[in-house]
Write a protein that binds this DNA or RNA. Structure first.
Length: 627
RNA sequence: GCUGGUGUAGCUCAAUCGGUAGAGCAGCUGAUUUGUAAUCAGCAGGUCGCGGGUUCGAUUCCCAUCACCAGCUCCA
């Protein structure tokens, strides 16, 4: 005879054991219709779960986050169900929930086609209409293995092998389809329906590229049609922000097959590039960095000593000249140590901060190249800080502040931070790694920054803090980084003289704020949908005349703007003003100054912002950005 | 690198069930002299990604290759 306490504190009493669904119905039929699960003591259960004891219960509806997660999970099962009905030979593997939806990996010799996707989607809708109940059963391990072997689902038996052998294993059955699953699930397929299959792709069994390839189907799912529609619209909008499309439209750069992963910067793109470099250079000067420039191509022997030849060889471009083998630099660090080593350094000189806008080449796998985001040649706002162990903490802390300051200046507030720890392929002993990882972790905790730990993802010479930004399709790209390196200075014989006159090996901090300048520009373009803020816009002002009579006067205005270091251009073409405005808007130029007889007579200027707002100024000198 | 898809004019996209391609925008020329998101007309523009094969004939079919797109794996 359970007493059930609801979240509002009220207690429902029942004279017999009840299911969560019964409780929902007792509260109201409206709630019953949207109840997808129940939560007891923080654990989620199906609505069919029978309650025997006095407990606290909250009903999970399709309106809540948890409810939507369950809907997505059940939709993945629905997808597998539909696929099995249409293609009985296909084997099912796993189907987890992801942001906005789900995917399901299938093992099949015949890959799915886009036409299949439509067919599968229709079949899924058919199953939704039938409102098939999802029934949970439990079995012991051997029975489950027998069952899946019996229906020739060998991947399922492999998954079961990894499960806890002492726990009963739960299965969910909908009609003729049964899947291994922890649950919970919606009561019946009628709770689903607001989904769309979005893409087909290959994936590896257990995420290992040595394993066989599976066929993955991605989908999005929501509890309401409106949300699904909104999401699909958002994706469409996001595609319009794609930096590759915008860069073509705005004539910023291009890529071509003869040099995959390497950029041809056009004038306007290169202007943006230089503005960014100038800004960073100014910041570095304030923060007491020096700037250097080192060779692009260095003899193999240096890379052997630095450890790159051993750990990084596949990703380096090499070339031979006069029987000597060279590598085009993938990183600047060994070269910076060469400069460091040319002078005898005292502990008083530390920390020594050496920056370079260094061009790096890395032989990235062809399938990973992606616009400006993933290139084979890019320039980093790289620097190496040579310091003593005692100085690590303050340098890392100062750098974290600097990263946030710079990102804010560019208009970014959403920054993801991760700590990547020692990889399998590495140099330096574990004691050194312990110290290095701790140094970074302490700094993050001191700054009270939320971060994710990525085990095994550090650089081969040291752990790193990663600062990442998202692109328009929510893909995360690492930009800034701070890496502690106790190994390379020693390998390349860097030393300093300490207080007692003894030779010591400095610690080296590898750090970049923007990371790759190219990638950062890609993210900027998408972040602003091409409408860069005034200080970054390659063309800041377009002067347009109404008719030919004002052309000379407009030319004078143009010259005045240029004298004020404003990047201005003219549009004196034989077009109507509305056409010129349209053109400037399409080019995302922040301001126009339209010169007609009125302006010529009064000597004033009227500026028009990209959003269409007009403001009058008494002279060019008085012009201030607005809007 | 792996799986699947795509590749036609500067851009966005048609067409040809095998008979060497067409539109809009951009460009150029001319007319128009215009007041806040497209004035009109004309012209020019393509070895149909590159290389083979089949065929009387290939942009179209087949093979190979390169690049791009999506995802996976990787990623400093």
């Amino acid at each position: 005879m359970p007493d059930i306490t609801l979240p509002d504190g009220s207690i429902k009493n029942f004279d017999k054991d009840v299911s969560i669904a019964d409780v929902a119905l007792a509260i109201g039929s409206g709630l019953f219709k949207v109840a997808v699960a129940g939560c007891i003591d923080g654990v989620l259960y199906d609505t069919s779960h029978i309650i025997k004891n006095n407990i606290k219960l909250s009903i999970i509806t399709s309106q809540t986050d948890e409810g939507v997660q369950i809907i997505r999970h059940s939709t993945a099962h629905l997808l597998a169900h539909a696929v099995k009905q249409l293609y009985p030979k296909v084997q099912v593997t796993i189907g987890p929930v992801i942001d906005y939806g789900f995917y399901y990996d299938f093992a099949t010799s015949e890959p799915f086609t886009p036409e299949d996707l439509t067919k599968i989607e229709n079949k899924m809708q058919e199953l939704v209409k039938k409102d098939i109940p999802l029934i949970r059963t439990e079995m012991n391990l051997t029975d489950v293995i027998d069952y899946f072997n019996g229906i020739n689902e060998t991947y399922k038996t492999k998954i079961i092998a990894d499960l806890d052998k002492n726990q009963p294993i739960s299965l969910y059955t909908q009609d003729d389809f049964t899947d291994l699953c922890r649950g919970p699930h919606v009561p019946s397929t009628g709770f689903l329906g607001h989904f769309k299959l979005t893409k087909i792709a290959g994936s590896y069994w257990r995420g290992d590229s040595n394993n066989e390839m599976l066929q993955r189907i991605y989908g999005v799912a929501f509890s309401h049609k409106k949300q699904l529609k909104q999401h699909l619209n958002k994706l469409d909008e996001a595609k319009k922000r794609d930096h590759r499309k915008l860069a073509t439209a705005l004539n910023l750069f291009h890529l071509q097959p003869e040099s995959p992963g390497m950029v041809f910067w056009h004038n306007d793109g290169w202007i943006i590039y230089n503005i960014i470099v100038d800004y960073i250079r100014k910041i570095l000067n304030e923060k007491n960095y020096t700037e250097v420039r080192t060779p692009e191509m260095v003899d193999r022997s240096l890379w052997e000593r630095s450890g790159h030849w051993d750990k990084f060889k596949e990703q380096m471009f090499t070339t031979s000249v006069e029987n000597r083998e060279y590598a085009i630099k993938p990183m600047n660090c060994p070269c910076h140590i060469q400069i460091y080593n040319t002078t005898l350094t005292s502990y008083k000189d530390l920390p020594l901060r050496m920056a370079e806008f260094g061009s790096c080449h890395r032989n990235e796998p062809s399938g990973t190249l992606h616009g400006l985001m993933r290139l084979r040649n890019f320039i980093q706002d790289d620097a190496h800080i040579f310091c003593s162990k005692e100085q690590i903490s303050s340098e890392v802390l100062a750098f974290i502040d600097l990263v946030y300051e710079v990102y804010r200046h560019f208009g970014f507030n959403e920054i993801e931070v991760a700590l990547s720890t020692r990889p399998a392929k590495r140099v330096g002993d574990d004691k050194i790694w312990d110290e290095a990882e701790k140094a970074l972790e302490d700094a993050l905790q001191k700054k009270q920054i939320k971060y994710e730990i990525k085990p095994g993802e550090g650089a081969f010479y040291g752990p790193k803090i990663e600062f990442s930004l998202k692109d328009c399709l929510d893909r995360v790209w690492q930009c800034g980084t701070m890496q502690v390196d106790f190994s390379m200075p020693g390998r390349l014989d860097a030393t300093y003289i300490d207080k007692n006159g003894d030779k010591k090996t400095p610690v080296m901090l590898h750090r970049a704020i923007l990371g790759s300048i190219e990638r950062f520009i890609g993210i900027l373009i998408e972040h602003y949908a091409g409408k860069l803020p005034f200080w970054l816009a390659p063309v800041q002002v377009i002067i347009a005349n109404i008719s030919e009579q004002q052309q000379d006067y407009a030319s004078e205005i143009l010259q005045e703007l240029k004298k004020l270091n404003i990047r201005a251009k003219s549009d004196f073409s034989n077009e109507k003003i509305s056409y010129k405005i349209r053109k400037a808007c399409n080019n995302k130029t922040p301001f126009m100054m339209i010169i007609g007889d009125k302006e010529m007579e009064s000597g004033t200027i009227t500026a028009r912002s990209l959003s269409g707002e007009n403001k009058e100024f008494s002279s060019v000198k008085d012009f201030k950005i607005f809007g």
